[in-house]
Write a protein that binds this DNA or RNA. Structure first.
Length: 209
DNA sequence: CTACCGATTGACT
DNA sequence: GTCAATCGGTAGA
């Protein structure tokens, strides 16, 4: 499982968010290995996006967002951790929030960490995913291209299949709420929020990309 | 030092 | 569907 290279992340966050879907997020630590297929991600567009933590410039908390692309930006919200990948270029502050993965390896480990047995509840949501994969502030600034501890790789089983991707408003954001910067795999049961219930698209709510 | 907030979750009706 | 607990970071006194 070779890690995606820096070039992958050195593109605009919308492209990276879309292309992260279907890739494998891998967590290796003393307890063992756990992984999942990314099925949901959101783009945060630096100074041109009021919902982005970097919108008002650099501070102590968001410093890693302004570091090199391909590094993890981990922050706490409502007493829970969330994982981003820094994108585009250093000093810009754009990133992709990884919102959900479909559990693959290490399911028992994830069940212990989450204290839940239902596989659908293990990593559906940005903070659940971090709990399942033991992602904390300790990994803030970690290099996702290193192939150690935490990284992202292509799915060897995908074989060039094309994913059907749906685009919608981001979840939970209070500013720039109307922008369609959330992407998820159509029909996946492992997507958070209003998604699994795949109804026809009420105009403006979600659109197939 | 205290007050307030949030890119959430889980329990509940 | 609703709603309150959650706690580290930040701002402000």
């Amino acid at each position: 499982m070779t890690p995606l290279a820096r070039d992958f992340y050195s593109r605009d966050p919308i492209t990276v968010a879309r292309e992260l879907l279907g890739r494998i997020l891998i967590r290796q630590c003393d307890e063992g290995l756990a992984s999942g297929r990314i099925v949901e991600a959101e783009a945060y567009l630096s100074s041109r996006d009021p919902a982005c933590h970097a919108y008002r410039g650099r501070n102590r908390k968001n410093a890693t967002m302004f570091g090199p692309p391909g590094h993890a930006y981990v922050y706490m919200i409502h007493a829970r951790w969330c994982l981003n990948a820094v994108t585009e270029a250093a000093d810009l502050g754009s990133a992709v929030l990884i919102r959900a993965v479909e559990p693959l390896a290490g399911i028992e480990l994830m069940q212990e960490r989450r204290r839940r047995t239902d596989v659908r509840d293990l990593a559906r949501g940005p903070a659940r995913l971090c709990q399942a994969l033991a992602v904390t502030k300790a990994l803030d600034g970690h290099d996702l291209t290193s192939g150690r501890e935490l990284w992202i790789a292509a799915d060897p089983a995908q074989n060039g299949e094309v994913l059907e991707i749906v685009r919608s408003r981001r979840i939970g954001v209070t500013s720039a709420a109307s922008r369609l910067l959330r992407f998820f795999v159509a029909g996946s049961r492992f997507v958070s929020g209003r998604a699994g219930r795949s109804r026809p698209l009420p105009a403006g709510r979600a659109a197939v990309v």
